[in-house]
Design a protein around this nucleic acid. Structure first.
Lengths: 204, 204
DNA sequence: TTATTTAAATTAGGATTCCTAACTACATAA
DNA sequence: TTATGTAGTTAGGAATCCTAATTTAAATAA
């Protein structure tokens, strides 16, 4: 029986969450579209663009083959391939670890920095549509998204994320969100999805 | 200047819509993850799975190379490649048009039907998280998503969709949504994202 | 009617993604 | 010291995905 599939338009007429799933799928196509549009302009592939942008904005320890594989949900050989090409194009440099001779991280070269300033805005057409929502709507949307991402993380689907909810510095007292690192209360808008200070909470 | 990139965590602390964009990007990874998980089980690639599910639930006229290319935002040769493989695996049959000898559509073979019942639920882990939201939340989420998809369509980013808002049978009277085909009012929940009766509204 | 344009699908060629399996090298714990 | 785990690579191959060019057919214009 596949009549109750979320992708069956008849099913969608009875079941709101099916429609939400198909809607999210359609929105996820947007990233694919925008990434390819940029790809064609600059002559890099989507994964190459994603890696460059990631390393532009994240600390060195996250810029290893192993972490990038987790971040983008691909295998290490796939990342290794992509890095080989970025290296050949002189957009990155490898920085080897002094303590562990197997390890290295990648950083942007000067050329890579220039490239990032070309590509970092690939999602701009999406953002400009989102900017049209009213502030209260934005807050509600954000609340939903951050909750959903946390649920997806807890259920084991998304292994990587750096949200407050999964961070060891986070604490919830009644309805109050609190960060023990910043030592202050977090209102909805200040919950982070990608906090630089994130440290995973030990599984309880 | 790339400091104001949506992917810069510092920028995200000032700007809610940047956080929403990164959140949506993370959620869009979920489809990639779930599709690959299913791929490994059944021995099909992601695009092959997507095509099979699509043709299972859509009318024949949408099951052509040209349309599938638009639907999944790839080129016709890419679809042609994928169909060649699905055909080799005997999961589909080609049905040639009598009026136009260049055209054909694809349909599921018996084997293809069986395969669809294995794969149609690939997004289930996501759906079961979404099912956890309360009915009022679901309604709000759906409202946001349908609005966003329509905005993305109007701004030319998403070329394909089959929502009420872009349909020629749709009419808005004040706050009331109305379908001239069904001849009835549409409450938020009955707005469709993928209506079988969809006919594009002529550009005004 | 004929010529031109447009469209549907394919082929050809090539870069890259992406996988699994096997491997090297190093680090860490028993 | 030996076993086990971890970081990254290599090898091999299927498939994705592009652009450009081609074939064939249909639609349109002269």
């Amino acid at each position: 029986m596949k009549d109750n599939s979320v992708f069956n338009p008849n099913q969608q007429q009875n079941d709101l969450s099916s429609k939400i799933v198909t809607g999210l799928e359609r929105i996820s196509e947007v990233f694919k579209i925008l990434l390819w549009e940029k790809s064609k302009v600059v002559g890099l592939s989507p994964i190459q663009i994603q890696i460059l942008i990631f390393i532009a904005f994240h600390k060195e320890s996250l810029c290893s083959v192993s972490h990038l594989a987790k971040e983008f949900n691909v295998t290490k050989p796939t990342v290794s391939d992509a890095i080989k090409i970025l290296d050949k194009k002189a957009l990155i440099v490898k920085v080897f670890s002094s303590s562990d001779q197997r390890r290295y991280t990648i950083q942007l070269s000067a050329l890579g920095e220039a490239m990032v300033s070309e590509i970092h805005d690939f999602a701009h057409p999406l953002k400009s549509q989102i900017d049209n929502f009213s502030p209260p709507d934005l807050e509600a949307i954000f609340q939903t998204i951050s909750t959903l991402i946390y649920k997806l993380n807890r259920s084991g689907i998304l292994t990587v994320q750096r949200t407050c909810f999964a961070c060891k510095f986070y604490e919830k007292n009644g309805a109050v969100h609190y960060c023990n690192l910043l030592e202050k209360e977090l209102v909805t808008n200040s919950i982070r999805l990608d906090c630089p200070e994130f440290v995973a909470k030990p599984v309880s």
